[in-house]
């Protein structure tokens, strides 16, 4: 055997290293562009929104358009606030969570207990598909089910149902993923002691995976708080604080939409969006924090 064809090809190392540097520069520049909207959006909200923030903004309900018009005409801040939106968001998100959490966690446990079985795979796939259904479609569904047949009119319940269908798949997934990470030995140890199965789930599995499930729940809540489209079709809105789940109800994103459409109220959109954004971010960051502390 003779050694043939030694490296006689030029290595072009200078040109290749230059290319490498240009590419890295491009990656950095494009990444900076990618995240710039978050900074631009938040700073816009803060700059335009903070001046409307006041005690009244949180504790009073929305003014009517005439009051707003007079205030704007005389150069004052618009009176009143978004209490009806805050209470409505609270009511609907709480009700949605109340529906979605038990349903999501129970199904998550079912999927975990039946790995690889056909029914479980079907449920998992259907849940995944539900997660991708556009929220406006869920709003329409809830309109057809709840508004038409149960509350016979727009209602907080209809809004909650549409939000809860959004939340369930996220909770199912996070529950299953969390449980899968729990060592089998923990479960077996409990079962070996003759503890009934449901007690193992309630006393061992759920507490062990609690923080993981909580992360999923908080993330799901942060996703639905800002939802507008389904609520337009279901909860409609209200100028008063409403705690009756069968009545039309406002919510923060619905108020943003109303203010956007009413030229007299336009000054309120930034502060309302800012409030909404702050709430979403808090849920988001808390869930991240919990997720991180688990590792």
């Amino acid at each position: 055997m003779e050694r043939v064809n030694p490296i006689s090809y030029p290595d072009h190392s200078k040109r290749r290293i230059l290319k490498e540097k240009i590419f890295l520069g491009l990656v950095i520049a494009l990444s900076a562009i990618t995240v710039s909207p978050i900074i631009l959006i938040i700073s816009k909200l803060v700059i335009k929104g903070v001046k409307q923030f006041s005690f009244d903004f949180i504790f009073k309900t929305t003014p009517n358009t005439y009051e707003a018009m007079t205030a704007v005409a005389s150069g004052e801040n618009i009176p009143g606030g978004v209490l009806n939106g805050i209470s409505g968001t609270l009511l609907m998100v709480a009700a949605a969570a109340l529906i979605a959490i038990p349903l999501g966690i129970t199904s998550g446990v079912f999927l975990y207990e039946n790995q690889g079985k056909r029914l479980a795979n079907l449920v998992r796939n259907v849940s995944d598909i539900l997660q991708g259904v556009p929220s406006i479609v869920l709003g329409l569904i809830s309109y057809m089910w709840i508004v038409k047949h149960i509350t016979h009119g727009f209602s907080a319940l209809a809004g909650s149902v549409s939000l809860s269908i959004m939340m369930v798949p996220m909770i199912v997934r996070s529950t299953e993923e969390t449980l899968k990470m729990i060592p089998n030995s923990i479960k077996e140890a409990a079962l070996a002691l003759g503890v009934p199965y449901y007690k193992v789930i309630i006393k061992v599995l759920i507490p062990t995976g609690f923080s993981g499930m909580l992360t999923g729940i908080l993330l799901a809540i942060s996703r639905v708080i800002g939802e507008t489209a389904p609520l337009m079709l279901t909860a409609l809105g209200s100028t008063m604080v409403n705690w009756d789940i069968t009545q039309p109800t406002s919510a923060l994103p619905l108020l943003v939409w109303e203010f956007y459409n009413d030229p007299n109220m336009v000054d309120l959109i930034w502060s309302t969006s800012l409030l909404l954004m702050v709430i979403v971010l808090i849920f988001n960051l808390v869930s991240k924090k919990i997720a991180k502390s688990r590792q």
Binding site: I39, E227, P253, W257, M277, N284
Partner: peptide, 23 residues
């Protein structure tokens, strides 16, 4: 950077709409 990208997913659609409309 990763956290910022995640936050982009957290911004409500209507806030994107406002920003798009006014900016």
């Amino acid at each position: 950077l990763g956290t910022m990208v995640d936050l982009l997913a957290g911004i409500p659609s209507i806030v994107y709409g406002l920003w798009g409309f006014y900016v």
